[in-house]
Amino acid sequence: MSSRPTIAVTMGDAAGVGPEVVVQSLLDPAVAGLADLLVIGDAGRLRLAADLLGVDADIRAVASPAEAQYLPGRIAVVDLGLIPDDLPFGRLSPVAGDAAYQYVRVAGELAITGRVQAICTAPLNKEALHAAGHRYPGHTELLAALTGTEEVSMMLSTPKVKVIHVTTHIGLIDAIARIDPPLVERTVRRGHRAMVDAGIPCPRIAVCAINPHAGENGLFGRGEEAEKIVPAITVLQADGIDARGPVPADTAFFLAGRGDYDLVVAMYHDQGHGPVKVLGLEAGVNITVGLPVIRTSVDHGTAFDIAGKGIADPGSMKEALRQAVQLAPTAADA
């Protein structure tokens, strides 16, 4: 048995840039040499992507990870055969939405049964996913449901800043209503564990406030910091976790960027995503924390506006694969 981990790479929405960034990434010797990279997707679509990119790729369909051979210039793919040859790039498609769901489902089954050691996902389109009848806000919630996990967190990782979210794909008013001390505490604990597992034994964690200036002693908001965040920080600190705050979000990200904090806890989606995306999508990786399997992802969408043009940047996909390898056990250890 190979000592290298096997990473299941889901192709994402076939109408988006997923096939292109997957092909580019797996043909990069610096990436392909890190692990056994097995695509879950559609061989025909990957061949079309390779043609659009003007690259030579030996794309081989296999029935299972055991059949795959990982050679330079070769891409092994568990071919589900769900994408018609004439599916256009850049257009919303329920067919592509269902296929993206099936890729994740198969990858999840392979990971749960130990036949792969991690999952790395190319982007799916939420509207296409819903049009196909799969009512999940995104990959994070889908994988939680497939693995029977009650609660997970989204962590965004860049070379400068790492962010974990208390809430993600819900409206702002609903997010504020959902935030409470137990949820904040559980999120911080998941983030703390992830950082420890990544080799930081005593991570310094900034917990963002909800309101501007952390409420400015009641001037802004209705006391949400004192009600929803402070009790959680008190419990965490009593347990020896270095959680500090509530910290105004604008200050927290500045301080984390200069190295004062190892992790920032964002209260809602845009509070965490905005600063990370300013740093550049090619540097960002999405990690799902709390699953029984390792999962990383690109931190960009399906980019329908450039899909099929051969110009998609594979930087985030390559970094997501690198981090999946770093987090995954070897096949011999699994």
Rank of each mutant, 00 (worst) to 15 (best):
T251L: 10
V196N: 03
F89L: 01
G191S: 08
L219S: 12
V116C: 04
N211F: 12
D242I: 07
A232F: 09
L48S: 15
T113S: 15
H269W: 10
L279G: 15
I173Q: 14
L92K: 11
A100R: 09
I311V: 15
C202G: 11
P137I: 07
P292V: 13
V152C: 12
L146R: 03
G81S: 14
H130F: 07
P72M: 00
G223M: 00
Q237W: 00
F304D: 10
I170M: 13
G18A: 13
A100E: 09
C202K: 14
A252G: 13
P329W: 04
R258M: 05
A238Q: 13
P123K: 06
H169P: 05
L291E: 14
V31Y: 04
Y101C: 02
S3E: 13
L71P: 01
Y268K: 05
I200Q: 04
V31K: 00
D28H: 01
D174T: 14
A131H: 12
A307L: 06
G274E: 08
K160Y: 09
E225K: 06
G272T: 12
N211T: 14
Q117T: 13
G108D: 09
H169F: 08
G218I: 06
G12F: 03
A131E: 12
A198K: 01
L281P: 03
E224F: 08
E141I: 03
A307D: 10
